[in-house]
Design a protein around this nucleic acid. Structure first.
Lengths: 219, 219
DNA sequence: CCCTCGCCAACTGTTGACAATCTGCATTCT
DNA sequence: AGAATGCAGATTGTCAACAGTTGGCGAGGG
């Protein structure tokens, strides 16, 4: 049931639904890097046929999460150290752009975004207290995604969605534990405060620092 | 025949080949915005079947050049004024990031990139002299693509590829003629000069100005 | 005249089968 | 023994047919 009161049965294209499902599975590490995706087997699991599944796989290939070798199949992308650097470099660029857009968008949007971010920071603190690393990674990225979403730029969001997925793959597969978990909450709170204060220079510096930390990126 | 002397018959996946072909057709305006893609007809034209074609279409949907409505088909995306703003905003962000990466990458990469850009500017001047607007749009974007390519960041390049395609759609479909064509050559030459001089601030400003021109973006 | 209902053609969504290719292993030759 | 060859199984690439949905068109009723 939508907001209009209209029931739309599976309104989105099947390939997109399957792709979203698989993306989630990939970032959760259910498919390991380098692992081949067996089309027949996976299609059977998903109660569909190879056609729609292959269409979904092509979407994820275009996104860069999977890689396709002709006559060999599609495989979960393995992220090299170079890839990790790339992801965090581009994430910084996108978040910086989002910050600029957000600051130029008026108080209302900033307030709205801050309200969302506050809730996420609170959630983050809870997960840090519980030392649930998987959840910390998820909530951490949820913060950044919400931040970028504040820019209300569809292309920025779409791009960041993929980068966030790749980041989760990094965290999961490089098995990087979060160093100094309490600093993590502090840093996100800092970004939030700077946004609320509309401190342009401070915010841009904080984002750059957050992404280029000397002890290596982690989220 | 590859550089290794090995003949690889169609090494790339079919869906990718078809997607690349269609992307080119779309930016050339052979498919009009809002137009439906008839799968059977197009598959027949390409001497293939609907299966591989649909996989290619899904790639372009993921890219955002096409849009898929369930049980209705896929259509060429129509770009609103808001979309155009988004594209140019993100392009500025990506080019800015590329400039930063390039400046921090050492003289060798900068020189190599400048050599490429010089050739493109020369080509641009030629097309401007000939007043071939279609070619001007192509070469203009070739300049920016080469600029971003200098950063040697695969994700940056991939993202920019889509943005460049969308830009060409804008130019073609909004039928925006290039204002002040000679200034066009001058501006690109300026960016090139600033890069060669490693003038960080000047380069970043020039990029921002180039993308945020008051008379509206054009390429 | 306008609205509604039901039919029809066209198209998309899905499936199962067939063809082509690759990988691994056993066999054979040097 | 080591390398090359041929075979077998599995998997991907491709296709054509079938099923389901949509939107338009015309007949019929208010």
């Amino acid at each position: 049931m939508t907001a209009d009161g209209v029931l739309v049965l599976e309104g989105r294209p099947t390939a997109q639904l399957i792709a979203d499902h698989l993306r989630e599975q990939i970032v959760q590490g259910i498919f390991r890097p380098g692992q081949q995706i067996n089309e027949s087997m996976l299609a059977a699991q998903l109660r569909t046929s190879r056609g729609p599944l292959r269409e979904a796989l092509q979407r994820l290939c275009q996104e860069g999460l999977l890689i396709s070798w002709r006559n060999r199949g599609v495989f979960v992308r393995e992220l090299s150290a170079e890839d990790v650097k790339e992801v965090y470099f581009v994430r910084e660029a996108i978040e910086t752009a989002a910050a600029k857009a957000l600051l130029g968008a008026g108080q209302e949007r900033i307030d709205k975004t801050c309200r969302v971010l506050k809730g996420i920071v609170k959630d983050l603190a809870k997960q840090v207290a519980a030392s649930d690393w998987q959840a910390i990674a998820r909530v951490d990225l949820e913060f950044h995604r919400a931040f970028v979403a504040g820019a209300e730029n569809n292309r920025l969001n779409r791009i960041y969605e993929t980068l966030a997925a790749e980041s989760r793959m990094c965290i999961l597969n490089l098995e990087v534990s979060y160093p100094r978990a309490n600093v993590l909450v502090q840093e996100h709170q800092n970004i939030l405060d700077l946004l609320e204060a509309r401190d342009r220079e401070g915010l841009l510096d904080a984002i750059a620092e957050h992404m280029e930390r000397p002890d290596g990126p982690y989220a």
